[in-house]
């Protein structure tokens, strides 16, 4: 044993060599870009007049003007709010349905047939290119789309359809996300339930506990870490939401909240894309960077909460 240990120490330097490619790629493609984005967010491009040259100043210009100021019109905070709402609207039904299905699929009392097939089918939307799914649903739901058409003909929906209406488009996007992701969450939760010590359920059965009691007294408490994990990964993914809203209706529809008109389906990453696209009329890398930094900080807070939760448990 001690000889073995000595050997591994002797060869240790190879371990160092082998992790070098990972760290080089990490520094070039993730670390430097992140640092540069933070740096860039402090470079403010101002234009004094229509034909004046752009002057760049180092400072909080992008934050003062775009994030918190008039020039930004609060669009970042609106987009952040919309992103969170979109996430909540898909995550809450998603986790509830997934939990229910996971409980059913693992229920020893009423053994369901064909769970393997159900899992495969319910998971399928998750693996298919989100971009194509968004365009598919756009073609179902646009004003001339077949679902809209059918609903109009049936007199359920007025002639102007659903996709241009703020709340409706928000709900449809949330539904698409829900539809794509509940299968994934369900499989994760089933794996979690299968990992619970079966003797706990056996003991509960001996004591005459019903399926419902077993679920609330054993499954749910022991599933907590996995539920937390699911929630945080979903929240982090949800904060980066882009493909579906971008291709479904490009974030155009509006809703009225109080005094302000809000683009009901523009997420934070969609805003960043708008200002970070080189050569576009909206290009403003400083603004895109400031928005990115805020999104990064929000994401970081969410992961911190998660690490704290798991640390407390340990």
């Amino acid at each position: 044993m001690s000889k073995n240990k000595k050997k591994t120490v002797e060869y240790g330097k190879y371990g160092l060599f082998f992790i070098i490619p990972f760290f080089i790629a990490f520094i070039v493609f993730q670390f430097y870009p992140l640092i540069y984005t933070i740096f860039k967010s402090f470079l403010y491009d101002s234009k004094a007049g229509r034909h004046a040259a752009v002057t760049t100043t180092f400072g909080l210009g992008n934050y003062i003007n775009y994030v918190f100021g008039e020039a930004g019109n609060g669009e970042l905070w609106q987009a952040l709010a919309i992103t969170v709402v979109l996430w909540l609207l898909n995550f809450i039904p998603q986790i509830l349905l997934s939990l229910l299905l996971a409980a059913w699929f693992t229920d020893a009392q009423y053994k369901l047939k064909g769970t393997g097939v159900y899992k495969v089918i319910m998971y399928m939307p998750n693996i298919i290119t989100a971009a194509t799914i968004a365009v598919l649903f756009y073609n179902f739901f646009n004003v001339n789309g077949m679902i809209t058409k059918t609903l109009i003909d049936a007199g359920i929906v007025s002639k102007d359809g659903l996709i241009d209406k703020g709340w409706w488009s928000l709900l449809i996007i949330a539904f698409i996300q829900f539809w794509m992701w509940y299968g994934n969450t369900m499989i994760v939760l089933i794996a979690g339930i299968m990992g619970i010590n079966p003797s706990l359920y056996e003991a509960a059965m001996v004591d005459g506990a019903t399926s419902r009691q077993q679920f609330f007294k054993i499954t749910l408490p022991l599933l907590r870490p996995i539920l937390q994990y699911t929630m945080v990964t979903s929240a982090i993914g949800g904060l980066q939401m882009f493909d579906i809203p971008q291709l479904f209706n490009k974030g155009i529809p509006l809703i009225q909240i109080g005094d302000s008109t809000v683009k009901s389906t523009t997420t934070v990453v969609m805003l960043i894309k708008q200002y970070a696209s080189l050569g576009s009329t909206t290009e403003n890398l400083g603004r895109a960077s400031a928005y990115s930094v805020i999104l990064f900080l929000v994401t970081l807070c969410v992961s911190m909460i998660f690490y704290k939760m798991t640390a407390e448990k340990n």
Partner: peptide, 9 residues
């Protein structure tokens, strides 16, 4: 957990 979207610039 760090998303790559935030460092696109």
């Amino acid at each position: 957990m760090i998303p790559t979207q935030v460092s696109i610039v």
